[in-house]
Amino acid sequence: MTRTLVVTNDFPPRQGGIQTFVAALLARRPPASLVVLASRSPGWEEHDAGLPYPVVRRPTGMLLPTRSTTRAAVDLAGRYGCDTAFFGAAAPLGLIAPALRAAGVGHLVGATHGHETGWVALPGARQVMRRIAGGLDVLTYISEYTGDRLAPALGGVTRTAQLSPGVDVDVFTPEADGAAVRERYGLGDAPVVVCVSRLVARKGQDVLVAGWPHVLARHPDARLLLVGGGPLEAALRRAVADRGLQHSVVLTGAVSPGQLPEHYAAGDVFAMPCRTRRGGLDVEGLGMVYLEAAACGLPVVAGTSGGAPETVREGVTGHVVTDPRSAEGVAATVSGLLDDPERARAMGAAGRRWVEQRWSWTTIAATFADLLDPPQRS
């Protein structure tokens, strides 16, 4: 059996999208095929005790490609007989790949997640990204958009392949019950538009709030449920108050991952009109929330940023708004779905089927296995 050394700074119990992605990939590999080198975060000892594979934690909260990290990785690879290495985030830890290859690790794979598209837009960082890629056998990307942005900068120095995050279709499901969430926030039987995301400008919650009066003009009983915390929260609360929307807009604050399905399920329509900012440096790599919402049977309204349009089959599972900065345009798209609940439900059902076919972890895990062990699966 091929044994894989996983080198990652992004690993539970630290929370985040990359951490969840890496942990989910590993959960679908044979435990005896894995050993992990990671950084420390609060609760790591208890977390690691429950894992079926060994995890070695460096005494740091940030794992960087230092000499000591390189020595630790080489030592682990030798001790466990690893013939494959996987970098949970290739930039910057992939810089230690040449040392692992020199130590006998024959196949090296590194993942990218979206922020690397910002790296390749900057001359110095672009050279580092190219150097990282040149030390790997495969560099993965999460969406066609990020792959297209990376390719010109890499110049063909390594093979690239898509490895997107997956959705746990047994957790995010139309059977999830949103009744308790509706009761908690006094939503009753009102039509609910839900947005689940960190509250940052790129995600577009400010546009949803600005456009909400237009939705209320057509659907006076509608409610907007903004799920998540983040630096934009105070400004959003002020905007809600300034517009007199306290009766119809709810901000939940941060919600634990285990509570997300019931929050999706409290909605009738999912909307997150994400937009690209800072000259392309602040961009949506893919947008897993759209796929989680679709898995829960909701029609989705997405923005045009980065890979977000790839999560929607236009007119089938939802809509991509052409101008995510337009409050009126976003409101019109959302209102159109609220106008026709039957059509919205049909889109939600189509989204569920699509996620099961294309985006479930069963599909993603098979892709990951092929990338880690191509000779046996050719």
Rank of each mutant, 00 (worst) to 15 (best):
I142M: 00
A102T: 12
R182N: 09
D206N: 11
A179N: 05
V167W: 07
Y145W: 15
V167K: 04
W119K: 06
P98Q: 11
A121D: 06
G114Y: 00
D189G: 14
A151L: 11
S197N: 14
D148T: 12
V196R: 00
Q162S: 10
L100I: 10
D189P: 10
L163E: 04
G94A: 12
G178H: 04
T158N: 06
A121L: 15
A97V: 09
H219E: 02
E144C: 05
D168F: 05
I132A: 09
A210T: 14
W212L: 03
D170V: 10
A111V: 02
T173W: 12
T146C: 07
R218T: 06
T173A: 06
C195S: 15
L163V: 07
R149I: 00
H219S: 02
V215N: 04
E183C: 06
I132S: 02
A103K: 05
G147E: 05
G114F: 02
A179G: 10
L216P: 08
P152T: 07
E116S: 01
L187G: 07
R198E: 12
R202N: 13
A125F: 14
Q205H: 10
L163G: 13
R182C: 07
A176G: 13
A153T: 06
E175Y: 04
E116V: 01
A179K: 08
G204E: 03
V194I: 03
Y145E: 01
V128C: 01
A217E: 12
H214M: 11
V105S: 09
Q127Y: 14
C195D: 10
R182H: 04
D177C: 05
L150K: 04
L136E: 13
G114L: 01
A99D: 14
